[in-house]
Amino acid sequence: MKKPNRNVVIRYNISQNGKEGLYFCGFDSCKEAENIHIYNTPHYTRKGLKVSVFPEGRTPINTLFENNISNFEDEASWGKGGRKGINTRYNNNLYYGIEPHPPDKNPMAENPRFRNPGRAGSDIDLTTLKELRGYRVSSRSPVLGAGAVIANDGGMDVFRTKLSGKKPIVGAVAY
């Protein structure tokens, strides 16, 4: 039997072209997840995938989604369980190509202006992360300085750039 997820932090990741869905956390039959915090993670999906954020049979449970980017170039849906959630909160996320999640306290619905998304491939050099540079944003991006302050945010973005904490970003890459 699997142990329940408790006190989980998922931060500063980059998700590209998730074909089956974006989040596989939470199960309708197992409501024991506790204190899950997912933040500063951009999700990008190319045209032709028609993704459900929460695939069939998945419902977010006891989770806070904050400062994330959902960028869909084609049809996307929240999924059957994703619209409701169980004790799940959303704050300060950017939505492009999908309607903002209704309970989000500070939703943004505009293009995040990634420089060159969708080109990372599957063979990423973990010492340089150069394949992920397309997820940097332009100087006109609405995510710059628009993030909610998160205590104990790890201090670095996905490229190991030190975070100032004064004007946080939405997404995984400090400008």
Rank of each mutant, 00 (worst) to 15 (best):
K2D: 14
K2E: 15
K3V: 10
N5L: 13
N5A: 15
R6C: 10
R11M: 14
Y12I: 11
Y12K: 10
Y12H: 12
N17L: 06
G21T: 11
Y23W: 13
Y23F: 15
C25L: 12
C25S: 10
F27L: 09
F27S: 04
F27K: 11
C30W: 06
E34G: 06
H37M: 11
I38P: 00
Y39G: 02
Y39H: 12
P42I: 01
H43P: 02
Y44A: 07
G48P: 05
P55E: 04
E56S: 15
G57A: 08
G57C: 10
G57W: 06
R58G: 05
T59G: 07
I61K: 03
L64K: 09
E66G: 10
I69Y: 01
I69F: 03
S70K: 09
F72V: 00
D74I: 14
D74S: 08
D74T: 13
A76H: 02
W78T: 05
K80Y: 06
G81N: 00
G82H: 11
R83K: 13
K84Y: 14
G85I: 00
N91D: 13
L94P: 01
Y95P: 08
P102C: 15
P103D: 13
D104H: 09
A109L: 15
A109S: 15
N111R: 10
P112H: 02
R113Y: 13
F114K: 09
F114W: 06
R115S: 08
G118L: 07
G118C: 06
R119N: 13
G121R: 06
G121E: 11
S122K: 11
I124C: 09
T127W: 08
L129D: 03
L129K: 00
K130N: 10
K130G: 10
K130R: 11
R133L: 11
R133W: 04
G134S: 03
Y135L: 03
R140P: 05
S141N: 05
V143N: 01
L144Y: 04
G145C: 03
A146K: 02
G147N: 08
I150M: 09
N152I: 09
G154P: 01
G154R: 09
M156K: 10
D157S: 03
V158F: 01
F159K: 01
R160M: 11
T161I: 05
S164L: 01
K166Q: 05
I169D: 00
I169C: 00
V173G: 00
A174G: 02
A174I: 03
